[in-house]
Design a protein around this nucleic acid. Structure first.
Lengths: 224, 224
DNA sequence: CACGGACCTGTCCGATCGGGCAGGTTCCGC
DNA sequence: GCGGAACCTGCCCGATCGGACAGGTCCGTG
């Protein structure tokens, strides 16, 4: 059968896939799932970005299944790899497979040339459908990713890096110290409801969705 | 009638009070509440620690009503002032009046020589009773403060500065980036329940009660 | 082998959080 | 005077959090 000259025909033939994930377990799991499909074939694996770039030239897959995990260490490694692959191999479809949903990440992945974005908790059939879609040259985004993408596209346009009001800065400094809404209210002589109101505005302006995230941002901003 | 030689008699006479609070409004409010009582008299006010130490020598109050607010800036200023007053003026009773309850703060205040700890949301009569108690040489802690004190005394004895396990460090680093339990679980390939379990242990070991506080501690620890 | 420690999982519950809705005041600039 | 912004307040709701249960595995030490 040989790996020579893999089929690039859109209609038929085997879809050659490369798996990129730093966990061997995950790669093995994906491999066993995908190889149950007669039209899918895993032709290569890689656990790092550099390894992926080395292997992709020889394996010449049609699809790269890329686990975009912002692991504890680097956040952009996966996105950079995605960009490099799509730049160097325009005929390869990168399908981002990630553990969970992040609006910004969906958009960044698209900018990096990804042709699909699938959250890992989709069922097996969803993943396989996505692979076939991308292999046919289409895009593949599951419902949640698509929704996130739309939200992300709608939000950022006017998404001012809004500046915090004086009061909000006050609240942020307390919030950043781990105080609850009730405690913030007590310290500022305002009601818990009002503290919550300010916190809500801060979350919106900092573009985060939890106070813990806000504390993280505050620490990066040097507010603490 | 003169302020000369204020009565130090335990049984009778006027109780001279000094107010220490950085908010003029609060001082005014306290003054009007206290002066409705015929046996209470506000003889001095101060808005800062240094001012308080200057004024106390001339005013010679029996009671110092000290607002121990860990304002946006300094956390220990109030406690330090409390310690200085009780050291330099052992016949003065310091009654800590604070916005909300904090177990550690109650204990720290006691160590700093405070003879009472009243949370601001007690009713007026509770405050006045506390002042009269301290003036009589007794201690005055409202029910909630007393309960907090007991809890604080029971907890800390073996309170190890427990060290985090490897897994907990991993979780902390994600937690400190503002991730939810679900997200942490997803990234570590464990269930949300387990993530929650680790977070719980981290909170206990760091001696905090919310993830936002944990992020704050983590930032101080340089974990971020 | 038995024990403890680290890790993993689940369920239940009350408290808090975050968002949405509907108001109010004050102050400043047009 | 008439917006508009910043601030303040209340009520509702579903989601998440944090704590307290009650289990389980694996592994290294005694």
């Amino acid at each position: 059968m040989a790996t020579l000259s893999p089929s690039r025909d859109a209609q038929s033939g085997t879809v050659d896939i490369m798996l990129v994930d730093d966990h061997a377990i995950v790669r093995q799991g994906l491999r066993s799932i995908l190889e149950r499909e007669r039209d899918l074939r895993v032709v290569a694996e890689a656990s790092t970005a550099t390894e992926a770039l080395t292997v992709i030239g020889r394996a010449r897959p049609r699809i790269v299944l890329l686990d975009l995990k912002l692991s504890t260490s680097s956040d952009t490694e996966g996105l950079d790899l995605c960009a490099e692959i799509t730049a160097g191999h325009p005929d390869v479809g990168v399908l981002v497979l990630t553990t969970f949903l992040d609006e910004q990440l969906v958009l960044q992945a698209i900018r990096a040339g990804a042709r699909g974005y699938v959250v890992k908790d989709v069922d097996t059939s969803g993943l396989i459908r996505a692979i076939r879609d991308v292999a046919r040259g289409e895009s593949a985004f599951d419902a949640r990713s698509a929704a996130a993408m739309v939200r992300g596209l709608n939000a950022p346009p006017p998404e001012e890096n809004r500046t915090l009001t004086a009061r909000e800065c006050e609240v942020l400094s307390l919030l950043a110290r781990g105080l609850s809404n009730r405690e913030i209210g007590a310290r500022l002589y305002i009601s818990e409801t009002t503290a919550k109101f300010h916190v809500g505005n801060i979350l919106r302006k900092l573009d985060v969705s939890s106070r813990a995230e806000a504390v993280y941002e505050a620490s990066k901003m040097g507010v603490i």
